[in-house]
């Protein structure tokens, strides 16, 4: 019995160690490439340990940091705003829906669910956002569309439904208002689901480049990921349509190593944020699958 357990342990550990290596290895290559000498990279390809270590790519990236810092600021701002307001508003929708007493609950549920199945498509969305609401080239375009995600609302609703009705009732008897119940009882009890949704929202906003692709023309409002995408895409467009005049520009284009360094610079904060949420994350992930 004990021996059997040990074998299972070994198999599981090897499996996860391999999985871990599969995930970490490309990232190591990325970091290593960013620390390589560009000519060396061309000569001998990617290596796990750069030899010699060369910081010129980072020097290039940080030599003129205004644009990156700007994009950092913009991305951080809309990620945090979306996370805070998004989680708050979604919780405020989800909580009433989790209570059995709410009249019209099914209608609201259906209204939310409907948007999960059907969307207006790109062009009508664009017309509303850009031509009617004039949100293009503002920070709001990153925040307002998609602030509420029905998926997360349902996830929270399931979690809230698991909180015993009795707690709410006893609070009511003690004279608590609905707001007090929500903010002082439900929210503190729901930290796992809130942290999970907050992390998801933050990460998806942090990695958002599509919004800028469609709505942002002002370079001061580029998001970080879009800036990276733009650098790579600009190079591709130059490559594909190289006339001699453009070719002279190509010599000045960031090299492979610089692009890797930029990717490392952009990935940084998301890596740091993750451990802070991890405590709640494991618990939150099982939300919706286990009732109780």
């Amino acid at each position: 019995m004990k021996k059997e357990k040990k074998i299972t342990q070994i198999i599981l550990c090897t499996f996860f160690a391999l999985l871990c290596a599969l995930v970490i290895f490309p990232f190591l290559l990325l970091v290593s490439a960013s620390l390589s000498n560009p000519a060396q990279l061309l000569e001998s390809g990617y290596k796990v340990i750069p030899n010699p270590v060369d910081f010129s790519a980072y020097a290039y990236v940080l030599k003129n940091p205004t644009q990156i810092l700007n994009a950092y600021g913009v991305t951080f701002a809309f990620s945090v705003i979306s996370m805070v307001f998004g989680v708050l508003l979604m919780a405020m929708i989800a909580y009433p829906l989790s209570r059995r007493g709410l009249r019209g609950r099914n209608v609201i549920n259906f209204y939310l669910y409907f948007t999960m199945l059907f969307s207006g498509g790109l062009v009508p969305t664009y017309i509303i956002v850009a031509s009617v609401l004039h949100l293009n080239n503002t920070l709001w375009v990153y925040i307002l569309p998609g602030l509420i995600s029905p998926w997360y609302v349902f996830m929270m609703r399931t979690f809230f439904a698991g909180i015993p009705e009795a707690i709410v009732e006893s609070a009511k008897i003690d004279g608590a208002s609905e707001y007090t119940i929500f903010f002082r009882i439900i929210i503190p009890l729901s930290k796992p689901v809130l942290a999970t949704v907050a992390l998801f929202v933050f990460l998806s906003k942090w990695n958002d480049w599509n919004t800028a692709l469609i709505y942002i023309t002002d370079s001061k409002l580029y998001s970080l990921q879009y800036l990276l995408q733009k650098i790579v895409e600009d190079i591709n467009i130059l490559k594909e349509n190289a006339t001699a005049a453009q070719m002279s520009d190509l010599a000045k284009v960031p090299t492979e190593t610089v692009r890797m360094a930029m990717a490392v610079v952009a990935a940084g904060p998301a890596l740091i944020v993750f451990p802070f949420f991890q405590k709640y994350f494991v618990k939150g992930l099982t939300v919706g699958s286990v009732k109780g």
Binding site: V123, A130, A212, L213, Q229
Partner: peptide
């Protein structure tokens, strides 16, 4: 409009 998104932005502008 930056060249990376010029095509998609112009498509939206025309479609709208």
């Amino acid at each position: 409009i930056d060249s990376a998104s010029y095509t998609s932005k112009m498509k939206n502008i025309m479609a709208a």
